[in-house]
Deep mutational scan, measured.
Amino acid sequence: HHHHHGSGALAALHAEGPLAGLPVTRSDARVLIFNEWEERKKSDPWLRLDMSDKAIFRRYPHLR
């Protein structure tokens, strides 16, 4: 159930192989992290948004 927010940013994801479903670039990863943060913020208003490279690598090590 993907609803768009204002920016309408869509992340490019790997379609197949071992990385299927994972973001292709760091900016794609940022979109995913932001979208998930927006969702989680509803139940956790104090949740901090962390889109640093460090956060991205921790989450998606293949982007190193």
Rank of each mutant, 00 (worst) to 15 (best):
H1T: 12
H1Y: 07
H1F: 08
H1W: 05
H2P: 10
H2E: 10
H2L: 13
H2Q: 10
H3T: 11
H3L: 10
H3E: 08
H3I: 12
H3N: 10
H4G: 10
H4L: 09
H4Y: 08
H4Q: 10
H4I: 09
H4W: 12
H4D: 09
H4P: 11
H4C: 13
H5S: 11
H5N: 12
H5V: 13
H5K: 13
G6A: 12
G6D: 12
G6H: 13
G6K: 14
G6T: 13
G6N: 12
G6I: 14
S7I: 13
S7D: 13
S7Q: 12
G8F: 08
G8I: 10
G8L: 09
G8M: 09
A9G: 14
A9N: 13
A9W: 12
A9E: 13
A9L: 13
L10K: 15
L10E: 15
L10H: 14
L10I: 14
L10Y: 07
A11S: 05
A11M: 04
A11D: 03
A11N: 03
A12V: 12
A12S: 14
A12C: 14
A12H: 13
L13H: 03
L13S: 04
H14K: 02
H14A: 03
H14D: 02
H14N: 04
A15K: 13
A15V: 12
A15W: 08
E16G: 08
E16F: 11
E16R: 06
E16Y: 09
E16M: 07
E16P: 04
G17Y: 03
G17A: 03
G17S: 03
G17E: 04
G17F: 03
P18K: 07
P18E: 08
P18Y: 05
L19P: 02
L19W: 06
L19C: 08
L19G: 02
L19S: 07
A20V: 13
A20H: 11
A20T: 09
A20M: 13
A20E: 09
A20K: 15
G21T: 03
G21W: 03
G21Q: 09
L22P: 01
L22D: 02
L22C: 06
L22R: 03
P23Q: 02
P23Y: 00
P23F: 00
P23C: 01
V24N: 02
V24T: 04
V24P: 02
V24C: 10
V24W: 03
V24H: 04
T25Y: 04
R26I: 15
R26H: 08
R26T: 12
R26L: 15
R26G: 05
S27R: 14
S27N: 13
S27C: 13
S27A: 15
D28F: 03
D28I: 02
D28T: 02
D28N: 01
A29E: 01
A29Y: 00
A29I: 00
A29S: 01
R30Q: 07
R30K: 10
R30A: 08
R30V: 06
R30N: 04
V31H: 11
V31C: 12
V31S: 08
V31A: 09
L32G: 01
L32D: 01
L32E: 04
L32T: 04
I33M: 12
I33R: 00
I33C: 03
I33V: 06
I33N: 01
F34C: 07
F34P: 00
F34G: 02
F34Y: 14
N35F: 15
N35V: 12
N35L: 15
N35R: 13
E36M: 05
E36V: 03
E36Q: 06
E36S: 04
E36C: 05
E36K: 03
W37T: 01
W37H: 05
W37S: 02
W37I: 02
W37R: 01
W37E: 01
E38G: 06
E38W: 15
E38N: 14
E39L: 09
E39Y: 07
E39M: 10
E39G: 06
E39I: 10
E39P: 02
R40H: 10
R40A: 13
R40G: 12
R40L: 13
R40V: 06
R40W: 06
K41R: 14
K42V: 10
K42T: 08
K42E: 08
K42H: 09
K42L: 10
K42W: 07
S43D: 13
S43P: 04
S43N: 14
S43W: 09
D44H: 07
D44I: 05
D44L: 06
P45C: 07
P45Y: 06
P45S: 07
W46E: 14
W46M: 14
W46Y: 15
W46C: 14
W46D: 14
L47F: 15
L47H: 12
L47R: 06
L47N: 06
R48F: 07
R48E: 12
R48Q: 12
R48D: 08
L49S: 01
L49K: 01
L49T: 04
L49I: 06
L49V: 06
L49W: 03
L49D: 01
L49A: 04
D50R: 05
D50N: 06
D50K: 03
D50Q: 04
D50S: 04
M51G: 02
M51W: 09
M51P: 02
M51T: 08
S52K: 05
S52R: 05
S52Q: 02
S52A: 03
S52T: 09
S52G: 05
S52V: 02
S52C: 04
D53I: 10
D53R: 07
D53Q: 06
K54A: 13
K54F: 08
K54Y: 09
K54N: 13
K54D: 15
K54Q: 12
A55I: 08
A55P: 04
A55V: 11
A55G: 05
A55R: 04
A55E: 15
A55S: 06
A55N: 11
A55C: 06
I56V: 10
I56G: 00
I56A: 01
I56E: 00
F57K: 07
F57Q: 07
F57I: 13
F57N: 14
F57V: 12
F57S: 11
F57E: 15
R58H: 14
R58P: 02
R58M: 13
R59S: 06
R59D: 05
R59Y: 06
R59I: 10
R59Q: 10
R59C: 06
R59F: 05
Y60L: 00
Y60I: 00
Y60E: 00
Y60F: 14
Y60M: 00
P61D: 02
P61R: 02
P61F: 04
H62V: 00
H62W: 02
H62F: 02
H62A: 15
L63R: 00
L63D: 00
L63S: 00
L63V: 01
L63W: 00
R64G: 08
R64L: 13
R64D: 09
